[in-house]
Structures are given as C-alpha cells and as structure tokens.
Nucleic acid binder design. Sequence first.
DNA 1: ATTTGTGCAAACAGTTTGCACCAAG
DNA 2: CTTGGTGCAAACTGTTTGCACAAAT
Lengths: 190, 190
Amino acid sequence: MTSGRRSPSQKTISTKNGKRETPSLKRPGPSARERKEDSPSGTTQRLTEDLRSSGIHPTQQRLRVFQTLTESKGHLSAEEIHGLIRSQTPRIGLATIYRTLHALKEKGLVEEHRFNDEFSRYEAKPAKHHDHLICIECGKVVEFDQPVIEQLQVAAARENHFTIVSHRLEIYGICESCQRLRKEHDALLL
Amino acid sequence: MTSGRRSPSQKTISTKNGKRETPSLKRPGPSARERKEDSPSGTTQRLTEDLRSSGIHPTQQRLRVFQTLTESKGHLSAEEIHGLIRSQTPRIGLATIYRTLHALKEKGLVEEHRFNDEFSRYEAKPAKHHDHLICIECGKVVEFDQPVIEQLQVAAARENHFTIVSHRLEIYGICESCQRLRKEHDALLL
DNA sequence: ATTTGTGCAAACAGTTTGCACCAAG
DNA sequence: CTTGGTGCAAACTGTTTGCACAAAT
C-alpha cells in the first residue's frame, strides 16, 4: 500500500485515437536542416560537431535530445525530455528519444542513472566524474565529487582481482529544506 | 539489436492454461503449520522468530522467501526466488514473492539492489553494511567493505547540508575469470 | 465470523521493436 | 534508388493490484 511510484506521466495515453489519419503535416518549415531554432547561437554547432565526431548522424531530433540534456543541467527522464522537446517541436516520438538516448549512452555522451528504484534518468556526461547525493523526500539530486574515493575503489578492486571500468556512489539522505519541513511538521504534533 | 536485457525468465508464461480448474490440491500435508520441511533443523525457527519480531506474520510462503534469501547467499531476483521455491512448493504465486519482498524490505530484513540497469535483486540484509563489485561481463557480484568510505560520505553530506540515511557504492569492472577469457579471445584474433 | 494472506489473471509503466513512410545522398 | 532515421502503435517485461477463495484466530 502507499506504493509511491512517482511516474512522469500520469496515465498511459489510451492508444486508440489517431490511427494514421493525416500523415501529411510532417514538416512545416523549409529544408528543415539549417534551422537553428531559438537556441543560443554557437551552441548548436558545437553539439552537432560532438555528435558527428562520435559517429552519430546529427539529425534534428538527435540534436534536440542532446541539446536538451546539455542545457537543462538536471537529470531528466525520457518522458521529461520528450515533453520539453515536444513543447517546441510537436511531432517527435518517444521511441526516438529512447533510441537516441541509447546511442548517446553507447558513445559515452550521456550517462544513465537509476536513483532509488525509479525509472531511468539521463544527464550529459560531465567532463569529470562526480557522484550523487539524493534526497529521499523530494528527489532532489546534488552532485559532488570526492577524489579520494577513486583510490579506495582501486584498492577494493585489486583485492578482488577486478579491473575497474566505472563506479557509482549514491548517498541517500534528507536535504536541508526537507529537514526543515520535517521539523515544522514534528513541531505541530507536539 | 543486441539489446542485452538478460531476463530471468525467457518468456512470459502464456497465461491461458489453468483457469482455476482444480482449486483442490492446495495442501497436501496435515495441518501444514508445524512442517519443518528439509531445512537445517533450528534455522527455520530462528527465521520465524525474526519475522515475528519484525511484525511480519510468519506464513509458510513468507518464511520460504526469507529462507531462500538467507540460505542462498547471492543476490536473487524475484523470479529466481520464485523458481527456487517453486521447485519444492509448487503452488506459490509470483505476486506473493513481490508482496513478501516488499514487506521484508520495509522492515529492513532485506535489501533491494538494481545493479547496472537490470531488474531488482534482493539479499538478506547483512549485519554490517557492505558494497558491491559487479562484473560487467558475467554479472558476478562480490561484496566488499571499505570503512573509510563511511567518513567520506559524511563529509560530502555535511558540505551539502544533507542528513545521511544510506549510501550505495557500486564498482563495475571485469572479474578475474572474464579477464582471462578476454585475453584468450584476443589471442585468437592475432 | 472476522481478519489476514494467497493464487491467479489482469492491469500498469517504462522501454523496445516492427513497419510504413520520410529524408538525404 | 538506396540507405538510414522517424512516428506510431503494438509488443514486451518486471512489478503491482483487484478479487475470490483459503487459512488462522
């Protein structure tokens, strides 16, 4: 009971509505390739180049996904990314988001996280590795890094004859504002 | 394409077979409460007590789940637990496994893990916290503990004004035998 | 008789896939 | 024309839930 599965979408969209009625209104603009949209000028170019040099053909959609991840510095779910992009470019499929994320992840351009036991969240891979502090009340995620951890893991791995590929340290706790909320709440009960 | 989703069950059992045909063969034995089965003598008693003192009414099924987790020291998925129990006690539902795991987790008797990005795996909560070393080739999990990590996380949390509740450190790498396999494989290519 | 737990099947939610169509070389 | 990418809907998979029945008090 009270199984709190915070879901990004409230309900499954009843898949019974538009059954390929008008496959026409696909491309409103012109060639649709040189459009820079309304993003900060040079940024798009750089991202495009990043994709290309990673062997990912930079289509509009892929660029949008990558861009969304780099701009909003948070840890977004696939559906959140979908929603954000959709608000500007209506016709993009969730499947494309997933396919793109898969490719980006494979090429090392994004990282996938599964905090607590929720669905996957993605972030553009940062220059230097960092770990996460997650609030179990509100879900807030704070990044931090502790270079010493790197050495510790080497020791642990060596003892067990493992070759390290990566690591993941997540600290679960209660953030400052939630602590405050708790205190207020407790005060009311006394 | 090569989307490696290692699944504990190959296929969904086509839910079209037994539609409540014979709700009879439920309880083969006698009162079915005092049965110790074939487990090491005193063990069952202790586990029963553990459950009871945690406020979980110790039914046959719950006991079985808990017992399976404590005996097989590994990190089992719900379906694996189901399979193991089923081989001795045919009629137990997967839903019961999940409900029990949920209860056990809530009471702090088991821990849930989601290594890599697979399904959940469970382990009986050990006396002292430990972390995991996971082989990305074969999925083997080795436990280790690094008491120093405890201090580091305290520091990281304090800086960010978090109250620590728990942490999770997973190191992904390649285990000894898989390293050997790789070398052999590489040798063949030269 | 009341309460609690269970098995089963159906529902869910996140993710993946099959396919017809679109877009670029 | 060929190749690869996309949108859509359907399939899949791990997990949860509704419900009728069973077990224990």
